[in-house]
């Protein structure tokens, strides 16, 4: 494993986008940053800027208005990048499956690497998911 891919594994910067969720998963993502879970020990920082970020965390189902924002954000991110969908509604639509303005899962708009089920997903599950997503960053360019 080269020094570059080690560094990629050790420093995934996050971009968090709320794509129409109920806030449940969003606050769990924030909770994962706080002392009890502290995902910064894996080098994870919430950057808030698509150009700097490596991993896009999306919560909630895509809808007719914000899918453009989501696609923009994804395109602004530089390679290598990964996408994690947090929460049942982002995976498939979940409880919002029959809401008229919901397109369904995030994977209808952008390619998704890791799905996290749960309504709302626990911080532990989010940590697991980031670990899974690192696999993609590691394999980049090989």
């Amino acid at each position: 494993m080269g020094i570059l891919s080690t560094s990629r594994m050790k420093s995934p910067w996050l971009l968090h986008f709320d794509c129409g969720s109920c806030n449940g998963c969003d606050i769990e993502i924030l909770a994962a940053l706080t002392p009890l879970y502290d995902i910064e020990r894996f080098g994870i920082v919430n950057m808030g800027n698509p150009k700097h970020a490596d991993v896009l965390l999306v919560t909630g189902p895509a809808n007719h208005r914000n899918y453009r924002v989501l696609r923009n954000l994804y395109q602004q991110m530089r390679d290598p990048k990964g996408v994690i969908v947090v929460g049942t509604c982002g995976c498939t639509g979940g409880v919002f499956h029959n809401c008229p303005n919901v397109l369904g899962g995030i994977d209808k708009v952008i390619p998704v690497d890791v799905y996290v089920p749960g309504c709302a997903a626990r911080p532990e599950a989010i940590i697991d998911a980031v670990v899974l997503a690192l696999g993609k960053l590691k394999a980049y360019g090989k």
């Binding site: 560094s7 990629r8 910067w13 020990r41 530089r78």
Partner: peptide
């Protein structure tokens, strides 16, 4: 800083990982 906030925090070499990773990112 992490310890002052009651957290463990990133490894001490973290800034170097960050910078090396940034060198490996796509140019833009």
């Amino acid at each position: 800083t992490a310890h002052m906030q009651g957290r463990i925090g990133p490894p001490i070499m973290q800034p170097f990982y960050d910078v090396i990773k940034l060198f490996g990112k796509e140019r833009c």
